[in-house]
Design a protein around this nucleic acid. Structure first.
Lengths: 214, 214
DNA sequence: GCATCGATTCTTACGCTGTAAGAATCGTGA
DNA sequence: TCACGATTCTTACAGCGTAAGAATCGATGC
């Protein structure tokens, strides 16, 4: 354990940098993230970060991976739950994490999740479904559908441009939205995103459950 | 019609700029789009664009709006089709447009679609569903679900980082992907994205159709 | 034809970005 | 104590978005 000759002077770590970067984009938006500003938030010059992370692209990938791992932890260790619950939990955990880190949505949407850790997680979930008799191709499809729907839905729910924190339709007043949309908004339709997500997710899962039985 | 005293010297137009910008991101990726480079592609200095578009943010919004209008045109004028067909056509048209302009995916995912034109279109589709007896809140939900799923699904399908044109799992060889994912890929599962999109979309639509009947 | 005017384009400049290269600094093992 | 290596900072460069103003061009009024 003495392979490191000297210790960091400020306790800086790749993980600390990634977490600080996630906190930073949550507070200031992804477009405000720069090496110099992130360094300043960590009490360090911008170039110092390059000793821990080779480039900004890798930094962003690391942030995404951190979120994916967090979502996986959250999905809970209900190892023997029926696969429909597994899929539902996974999607809900992803949604919860994205809600807790709204600044990361634009990042995760713009960047493929190809990190080894993410693949391992995906594979593990795939295995859970397969062990319960779900054919592999259906397992791939229902997982992919649940995740992609969740990301798309959360994208529509949480404002996407950093300056526009409101959801897609909340910012539109009923007056300028057109007759039908205006009426729907006046009734309050389309604003309970959690309920809508839950309902559509159930349709997807039920649909694949019916396929898996046949 | 003589309110304009002088004519543009290179035939430049807001629309031409937006189309050139879309073509540019399709070819070089969204991160390569800069005012100077886009100007060069149009045979003009970068600052010239600011005479037609007030900022890069507005430029990006305009590009997204152009795509939305294009998708609406594509959905076809089957005015009296059953609402399930309307939803399906709308989602498929969106998917087709996104496929034709892969560089725009990151842009459209990062930017809310709040333009007046987009709202008018959404309202019109909402009205089509409502006139066939679909309650407004269900119409909102099924449209939102179909669109968000389509965007999320296409995000997962088409590589997201500009340097990574491959789909999410195509780049992962079966060997390093884990046992189950590896087996699934070896069988070729999860690669026919069009079929998968179509199938899950049908589940969503059918699910809401069942709700609308009750 | 010529002058004029306004629309269009270009030039310059500023602070910001990511990051390459190398110098400076500090904690630790010998 | 000394030297080494890990860590941090300094400097520099090209490119970014864009503010401000100068230059240029085409159509119009005389």
């Amino acid at each position: 354990m003495a392979d490191r000759r000297s210790r960091p002077r400020t306790g800086l770590t790749r993980e600390k940098i990634l977490d600080a970067a996630i906190a930073f984009v949550d507070e200031h938006g992804p477009e405000a993230l720069s090496t110099r500003r992130l360094g300043a938030a960590l009490g360090v010059e911008g170039m110092t970060l390059y000793h821990y992370v080779p480039s900004k692209a890798v930094l962003l990938d690391g942030m995404v991976e951190r979120l994916v791992l967090q979502a996986a932890d959250e999905a809970g260790p209900a190892q023997d739950a029926p696969w429909t619950e597994v899929v539902r939990d996974t999607a809900n955990a992803l949604r919860a994490v994205l809600h807790r880190h709204p600044g990361m949505l634009a990042v995760i949407a713009t960047r493929p999740v190809n990190s080894p850790a993410a693949l391992v997680l995906f594979d593990r979930t795939l295995g859970r479904l397969h062990s319960q008799g779900v054919p592999l191709d259906l397992a791939m499809d229902v997982l992919n559908a649940a995740m992609t729907f969740t990301i798309g839905h959360t994208l529509a729910e949480i404002g996407r441009t950093p300056g526009t924190p409101a959801a897609a339709f909340e910012s539109a007043s009923p007056s300028d939205a057109g007759p039908h949309l205006g009426e729907a908004l006046a009734v309050g339709a389309g604003l309970d995103f959690e309920r809508r997500h839950h309902r559509t997710l159930a349709m997807i899962i039920d649909g694949y459950a019916a396929l898996a039985v046949c």
